[in-house]
């Protein structure tokens, strides 16, 4: 008995068959005293088994790759091509509940090596030439959160300076407290600019630009 139901597996298989183009890696970084690490690995492995282009690897926080990607918390799930996306599309904590759908959409976009945004947003996005870290605090029972997570991940696919990091607030309460997270999605950009809510790309990008301009 796995975590993903058979009928869901069937559906996912269909989606993957239809949409996957290039290889995709699900990297799960595990660590000690980590309540959800084994679940994160198990779910990721089940997803990987659904299509030959999806590869699962387990790593450890503290190893070479985790250092290269700048990862510190376990579990962290990275969706990547192992090349230009590096560790920039990631989930700290279990991508369960509504965030499972974000992870599946990421797998498809990463495999397509592309993501959709409007021309207007793309122009603003392309001007970002310094590292921007977008952290999205979520709960798995928040239906509005995937939109905020996926926006950061789509931005990360389109611009190599951007990292999108979902943080599961219930699994990391101290971290959430540091930013006084009491309503989700709560977005923190470069540990500076903050906003709450799931906004359209056009508004989201303005916050990213604001954080970027503060760096100059």
């Amino acid at each position: 008995m796995g975590y993903i139901q058979d009928k869901d597996k069937k559906y996912l298989k269909g989606e993957f068959d239809k949409n996957l183009k290039e290889d995709v890696y699900i990297l799960v970084f595990v660590g000690d005293n980590c309540q959800y690490c084994s679940v994160a690995s198990a779910i990721s492995q089940e997803v990987a088994e659904l299509h030959p282009k999806i590869h699962f690897e387990e790593h450890t926080i503290g190893d070479e790759l985790s250092k290269e990607y700048g990862l510190e918390h376990a579990p962290t799930v990275v969706i990547t091509d192992k090349d230009k996306y590096g560790g920039r599309i990631r989930y700290v904590g279990l991508p369960s509940g509504y965030e499972f759908s974000s992870m599946i959409e990421d797998i498809i976009d990463v495999s397509r090596r592309m993501a959709e945004v409007s021309q207007e947003v793309l122009e603003k996005l392309m001007k970002i030439d310094k590292p921007i870290l977008i952290q999205i605090f979520v709960t798995p029972t928040c239906p509005y959160c995937p939109r905020a997570v996926r926006t950061s991940h789509r931005f990360a696919i389109l611009n190599k300076n951007i990292t999108g990091e979902m943080v599961e607030a219930l699994e990391f309460p101290e971290w959430a407290d540091k930013w006084k997270v009491m309503s989700v999605p709560h977005i923190v950009i470069n540990e500076d600019v903050q906003f709450i809510g799931a906004y359209p790309d056009e508004q989201y990008i303005e916050y990213v630009v604001e954080a970027y301009e503060k760096m100059r």
Partner: peptide, 8 residues
Amino acid sequence: FGLVLPTG
């Protein structure tokens, strides 16, 4: 929390 699927 279950696992919610996207619609594609």
